[in-house]
């Protein structure tokens, strides 16, 4: 018993820097990064996000899921001696010595005001809500900026062609970080265009399955009411019995 207690202590000890902030004593390797131009010495194995926290920033903007899903942590940086302006997700990118960076706290862009049920399922939905897609010069800057490695230019071209299925496929992993839109010389807000197209494809291009409609109709008729009534009223003993007797759907 006392053994497991010390074990829990050991675990929290080992994760201390992750759960409570890094203690300098634990650090062996250091790099220097420049946060908005000011240099900080930070542990070499941190992400841009945790390095900023180490340096003393309490993140309010540019930090959400911390795991590469929400797109809050868009960051642009230059490596020492490089002309290229790179972009990354702060929560997914390890710091490098000499990196000079700034986070993008917000990217202004208005999403379309529309009622999906009232839109027509063809390319005109894009020219109606985002006519600027026609301005794309195919420079591919958006693709270079995308931290999810999506072919952003290609999905914008799919929108121009009215090819909803390709657009949905190509833009699916977009986390709406905003980096592409900030770099686009044609001022296109790619992620909004992509989202409009995906929703249109979801509703019109990939319709509701028949088996779902059937189930909804059964529900409407109240077909399962009595069996559910019985389950809600059942004793724990009875439920255990029924649970044990369930037959697993065959694996085909």
């Amino acid at each position: 018993m006392s053994e497991s207690k010390t074990m829990m202590e050991k675990i929290s000890e080992s994760t201390r820097s992750l759960t409570t902030g890094v203690d300098t004593r634990d650090v062996e390797h250091w790099v220097t990064i420049y946060i908005m131009g000011r240099g900080y010495s930070v542990p070499a194995d941190l992400t841009i996000m945790t390095a900023m926290e180490f340096a003393g920033y309490k993140l309010i903007r540019s930090c959400g899921c911390r795991q590469g899903f929400c797109g809050a942590c868009a960051t642009i940086f230059r490596r020492e001696g490089q002309y290229k302006l790179e972009s990354a997700l702060a929560c997914q990118t390890r710091v490098e010595d000499g990196m000079c960076l700034v986070q993008i706290p917000f990217s202004p862009a208005e999403a379309a005001y529309y009622d999906i049920a009232a839109e027509s399922y063809d390319y005109s939905v894009f020219s109606k809500h985002y006519p600027e897609v026609a301005r794309c010069v195919s420079c591919n800057t958006c693709t270079k900026a995308c931290p999810q490695d999506l072919e952003v230019m290609d999905y914008i071209q799919s929108a121009i062609k009215g090819d909803f299925e390709s657009l949905a496929e190509q833009s699916f992993d977009c986390i709406q970080c905003g980096l592409c839109a900030l770099r686009c010389p044609a001022e296109i807000v790619q992620y909004n265009v992509g989202h409009l197209g995906r929703r249109m494809f979801g509703r019109y291009g990939s319709p509701e399955p028949e088996h779902l409609k059937t189930r909804l109709a059964e529900m409407e008729r109240g077909e399962f009411s009595s069996v559910l009534d019985a389950l809600v009223g059942a004793s724990t003993e009875k439920l255990k019995e029924l649970y044990a007797a369930r037959v697993r759907e065959s694996d085909e």
Binding site: A134, C136, V137, S138, E151, M153, D154, Q157, I160
Partner: peptide, 10 residues
């Protein structure tokens, strides 16, 4: 494959 807009009037 992967053709893009021709660039048109521009």
């Amino acid at each position: 494959p992967r053709w893009n807009c021709c660039g048109v009037v521009t």
